[in-house]
Structure formats: structure tokens, C-alpha cells
């Protein structure tokens, strides 16, 4: 009996020691990566915590906001921390890490993707498990249940799915530029199938389950905004353009944007609509890489308008847009 008990203790002790050793080794490797959507981009963003302007969001941010244009217009250092396929979960957790690291930013910009408000896929942001010990916000988001909290106790588990990509990024880093912006070079030749799913995009409004997801996500947007305001960082939500080929916004999209603008109002954030409805130039197909993303040319225009807004305040830009029209 005593022997069994000793063996059990030794076995558990060995497991814990190995877990810590593997976790530490992987963390050391992970901290050296600065590329890759599976985590290196977070390190890259954290290295640029001193930039005056940090841009958050999904591919809509990454491909559409050029920090160099912002820098040229504003004389402020900017960094694009957008990450393809990510949403407010990613932005909120990254923001919490940035703010903990004495972030010196004066402006946060969040490029909105209204579709994210009705899709709940936390798994995509699971790479923040690595930082579980560094931020209560991350633990709160990633481990709402007891079983997740138990899993996160394992330092090896925090690198679930990340080990392969970490090694890959160390050996063969992807080239991603120096300021996070990746412009889409290709000219867009629209085909009818591009619009097939767009035609079904929440045209009939939101279902009750979509509304539930939206309410949860709106809370994260509110938290994101509040946290920035508490650090005296101004926040601007940006609605970017879509190439619709004459189609109008669906009811669901309008409802979501309306809710987002209310969050911006409540939290004293700016809500800037720089899309095809306010900027006629964005109705031109030559600005697009695909229906949802501007190409490099469109991105330069969007970035310039955004810079003007940050320089003069959103009301002035909105007025200018109206004048242009």
C-alpha cells in the first residue's frame, strides 16, 4: 500500500516536472518567433507596444490599414496588429497584454468586421493560452469553465497546436513586412460567385441565436473600449468598404452596425464609417482585391482618410466626406 502511494506521488511529480520543463522550453522557443498567425504575430505586436497608434482587427485591418500612410500624415509611429481570421476575442486579449506592458499608444483603431458579431469561434484565438499567467482577462476569456481552468494548469497544454507552427516559424519565418501591413496587390475581376454568399448574409435580420452571440460579443467590444479609455487611449471603430456591385446592406448587417455604434457612443469611442456609402471612391471595383478587402490602392485611400480623421476628429472627416459626395 505504502509502495503504491509512493509510486503514485513519484508518478505525479514526474508528470508535473516534465510538464513544466516542456512548457518552459516551448515558451523560450515561442518568444523568439515574430511571424505566423499561430502566435508569432502576437509577439511582434507586443514588441511594438510603444507605437503611438495600434490597429486591431482581422484581415480587414491587416490588408487595409497601412501604418506608413498614417505615419506620413500624422507624424506618429503606427503598427498594424490585425490578424487574419481573428475577431474581438483576439483584439481584447492582445489589448490586455499591451496595456499590462506599459503601452504608450495614444490611439487604438479597430477595423470592424460585422460578421464576427454573429460567429462565436473562440478556438481561433486559443494561442493566447501561452499568456494565461500574465493576464486575468485572458484566463477569463479562455477558461470560463472548470475543465478549461484545469487544462490551463498544464504548461505543455498551453502550446496545444502551437508547437509545430512555432518550430516552423523559427526555422522558416514568413515574410510579413515590418509594420504588420500586408497589401493585396492583385486587381480584382469580379465574378458572380463572389456575391453568392453575400446575398445570403443575414438579409432577413438576426436569428435569436445570432442575437445571443452578438450580445456576448458586444460586451467584449465594450470592455475593449473601456480598457483603452481607462488608459487615456482614444479608440476609433472603423467600418471599412465592401464591393457590393450595386447591392444594398442586408437588415442583419444594419442591425449589427447600429448596435456597434451604440457601444461606441456609450464608451466615448469614435465610430467612423469609411465605406462605399460615405466615400464614393470605394464604389470603384479597382480599389478591391476581393469583395470584402481593399487592394493596396484602396488601402492607401482608406489609410489616408483614417489619418485625416485621427488628425481632425471624426466629425470633420464625416463632414468632408459629405462635401466630397
Amino acid at each position: 500500500m505504502v509502495r503504491n502511494f509512493v509510486l503514485l506521488i513519484a508518478f505525479t511529480g514526474g508528470l508535473v516536472l516534465l510538464d513544466r520543463a516542456i512548457g518552459t522550453a516551448l515558451r523560450a522557443a515561442y518568444d523568439r518567433t515574430v511571424t505566423g498567425e499561430a502566435g508569432g504575430q502576437i509577439n511582434d505586436a507586443l514588441r511594438h507596444a510603444g507605437r503611438d497608434i495600434i490597429v486591431f482587427g482581422s484581415s480587414l485591418a491587416r490588408h487595409q490599414v497601412d501604418p506608413k500612410v498614417l505615419e506620413d500624415h500624422l507624424g506618429l509611429a503606427a503598427f498594424n496588429a490585425g490578424c487574419n481570421g481573428q475577431d474581438i476575442y483576439y483584439a481584447r486579449m492582445l489589448e490586455s497584454l499591451l496595456l499590462q506592458r506599459q503601452c504608450k499608444s495614444r490611439h487604438f483603431v479597430y477595423v470592424l468586421n460585422w460578421r464576427d458579431l454573429v460567429q462565436d469561434d473562440l478556438e481561433r484565438s486559443r494561442m493566447f493560452s501561452v499568456f494565461a499567467d500574465e493576464s486575468p482577462t485572458i484566463r477569463q476569456i479562455l477558461a470560463p469553465s472548470l475543465s478549461q481552468q484545469i487544462k490551463l494548469q498544464s504548461h505543455a497544454y498551453r502550446f496545444n497546436t502551437l508547437a509545430v507552427s512555432t518550430v516552423r516559424q523559427l526555422l522558416v519565418p514568413e515574410h510579413e513586412g515590418t509594420d504588420g501591413f500586408v497589401g493585396i496587390p492583385i486587381e480584382y475581376e469580379p465574378v458572380s460567385t463572389d456575391f453568392a454568399d453575400m446575398d445570403h448574409d443575414l438579409r432577413g435580420g438576426l436569428t435569436s441565436s445570432e442575437r445571443q452571440v452578438m450580445l456576448q460579443k458586444l460586451k467584449l467590444y465594450r470592455d475593449f473600449s473601456d480598457s483603452a479609455q481607462r488608459q487615456h487611449i482614444s479608440l476609433t471603430f472603423v467600418v471599412s468598404p465592401t464591393y457590393r456591385d450595386g447591392r444594398t446592406r442586408g437588415l442583419g448587417e444594419r442591425q449589427i452596425l447600429n448596435e456597434l455604434s451604440k457601444v461606441a457612443d456609450e464608451t466615448q469611442a469614435n465610430f467612423l464609417v469609411l465605406d462605399e456609402t460615405t466615400v464614393p471612391a470605394f464604389r470603384d471595383v479597382l480599389c478591391f482585391g476581393d469583395p470584402r478587402h481593399l487592394n493596396a490602392r484602396g488601402a492607401a485611400l482608406l489609410s489616408r482618410l483614417l489619418a485625416e480623421c485621427l488628425a481632425s476628429g471624426p466629425d470633420d472627416v464625416a463632414k468632408k466626406q459629405r462635401d466630397d459626395e
Partner: peptide
């Protein structure tokens, strides 16, 4: 044998933790 079993158990545990699908 006991060491073999322990090593196998540890190897499987960490393979699951690192490479297993989460959902």
C-alpha cells in the same frame, strides 16, 4: 516494465496535450 509504462504514459500525455485537437 514500470519505467516503460511510465515513459509510454508520459509520452502519450504530452502528445495529446501538444498535438491533440482541442474541440
Amino acid at each position: 516494465p514500470i519505467a516503460t509504462n511510465w515513459i509510454a504514459f508520459y509520452a502519450l500525455f504530452f502528445a495529446i496535450a501538444l498535438f491533440g485537437a482541442e474541440a
